[in-house]
Design a protein around this nucleic acid. Sequence first.
DNA 1: GCCAGGATCGTCT
DNA 2: GACGATCCTGGCG
Length: 191
Amino acid sequence: MRALGPGFFDRSVHEVAPDLVGCTVVHGDTAGVIVETEAYDATDPACHAFGGRTPRNEVIFGLPGLAYVYLSYGIHSLLNAVAEADGRAAAVLVRALEPVAGIALMRRRRPGQPDRELCSGPGKLTQALGIGLELNGASLSEPPLAILARDDGWAGVELVAGPRIGITKATELPWRYSAAGNGFVSRPRPA
DNA sequence: GCCAGGATCGTCT
DNA sequence: GACGATCCTGGCG
């Protein structure tokens, strides 16, 4: 399998977000297949970059193919992939993974959780993979952090688009993408 | 199983 | 000084 390069991310975030479903996030010895993503762009009131560039959100405006990691609710690190050309603000939030490697290590990082809960939320998957704020601005194309291209088995998987979760602005935009029929989505999928 | 409430802190007004 | 792109626990049925 091959790591996705900047070219993959240098497109509309609304193409990148659905295309990331089925790709594999690797960090260290742990890895999981993406089953749910959300798109954010500069026209979107729910996006951190809406309303201007600050030191915090600077990475979103930068080069495609980098990781944007930030702290939510003072507790959870959330992982995003920066999309679109340098100077344009857009990113894809990784909401849920299906664990595929390093599962024993994930269990150790998330004691007491059943396997299907190891990566079934944006804060959970960063804990399971050991992704923290120190990876903000890191490349997604080379170790220790990478996103690998989808393999052929996912070519025909049906994608469902629905409203985004956990936000209070622009909740009507159907910019959440999940793989239908898997047990690892972070919330029940839309009807 | 479902729901309500608390945790916890960087960032911006 | 308020507010999150969330998660976990405890109470109840």
